[in-house]
């Protein structure tokens, strides 16, 4: 069963087309990765699905119901974890979750139970009476999630829920996402951290210039990149200007450097590894290891969009 069905969605802001005739399907039980660089149309799509923006054209169905015609049904089954925190700092954690859950028609004992359940789920059960202004960034992010799940939606959209938090909270959130999914929630997950998406998402769509340019499982996406090789060279030290020299080698598409490691994306058909190594040796650099890697999601994204995810 399709939990979300987007057909021919277009959203324009004046003459600017933010989402261009997009079609997308998210099936029940998936953790669906939605990837795109800044300005690709990802957030606009999420905002239209959440009824924050009106579509210029197209149709969106949640659990087979048109969100424009049966908006209450759609909203009752949707939970959003916005990228920016959406909590009241001057209300306790309990009051925050209880207030938002109350807007979904929960009352009395049921409201109390669901509120406590949601707080326990994100590990804030013992902080129910505390004010978020005294919370760490990670705790606030977890409360942000609790506010979106107390009414037990079928579909949860998480827009970069781990941005700017410590690794411990990040792991906690990723575990929570998996647990939510296991409990029957379908999740749409966006992140700038490719490794997160690779780790938890069962299917992924890459959006660029308002269009879905690739969609499938991690394996399916990686298999589309047969014409690119991903070379990883570890050096003792890296001298300035070497990245530019490597880029000038025929077949090289992209070169990036992180500490002593240089990563090169190059056309698979061009045999240019010798020239790369010669360039480094001529520049007086000591090579520690050379490795040709399987393309990962980052390679796929870079190859398809020509941009890094964090651009």
């Amino acid at each position: 069963m399709n939990v979300l069905d987007i057909r021919g969605l277009t959203k324009k802001f004046g003459d600017f087309v933010a989402v261009d005739n997009m079609s997308l399907t998210v099936r029940e039980g998936e953790i669906f990765g939605f990837l795109g660089a800044n300005g690709a149309g990802k957030s606009t799509t999420i905002n239209v699905v959440s009824s924050l923006l009106r579509p210029s054209s197209g149709e969106i169905r949640i659990l087979d119901k048109d969100i424009m015609k049966q908006s209450r049904f759609a909203k009752m089954n949707l939970g959003i974890v916005p990228q920016d925190l959406a909590i009241y700092e001057d209300m306790t954690a309990y009051e925050n979750v209880s207030f938002f859950a109350g807007l979904y028609g929960l009352r009395g004992i049921k409201l109390k139970e669901r509120t406590i359940e949601a707080l326990d789920f994100v590990g804030l059960g013992d902080k129910a009476k505390s004010f978020p202004k005294n919370f760490s960034g990670g705790m606030k992010r977890r409360l942000n999630i609790a506010c979106a799940i107390a009414h037990k939606p079928k579909l949860i959209i998480m827009d970069e829920p781990t941005v700017g938090i410590d690794p411990q909270s990040r792991n906690y959130i990723l575990t929570s996402v998996r647990k939510l999914n296991e409990s029957g929630c379908t999740i749409i997950y966006t992140s700038h951290y490719m490794e997160e998406v690779e780790e938890i998402c069962s299917r992924i769509a890459i959006v660029d210039h308002g269009k879905i340019i690739a969609e499938g499982t991690k394996e399916q996406l990686k298999s589309t990149i047969t014409d690119v090789k991903d070379i990883r060279i570890e050096l003792k030290s890296v001298q300035g200007g070497v990245v530019e020299k490597l880029r000038s080698i025929p077949g090289v598409r992209n070169v990036s450097q992180e500490d002593h490691v240089i990563r090169i994306h190059s056309d698979a058909a061009v045999d240019n590894l010798n020239r790369m190594l010669k360039q480094l040796i001529d520049a007086g650099m000591e090579i520690r290891s050379v490795e040709e890697q399987e393309p990962n999601l980052e390679t796929v994204f870079l190859t398809l969009t020509g941009r890094n995810l964090r651009d």
Binding site: S51, L52, M76, I80, P82, I87, E89, Y104, G105, C147
Partner: peptide
């Protein structure tokens, strides 16, 4: 400003 308008608008209210 707080970002909570988003939650209010997406709720069935």
């Amino acid at each position: 400003t707080r970002g909570t308008a988003v939650r209010l608008v997406i709720a069935p209210v």
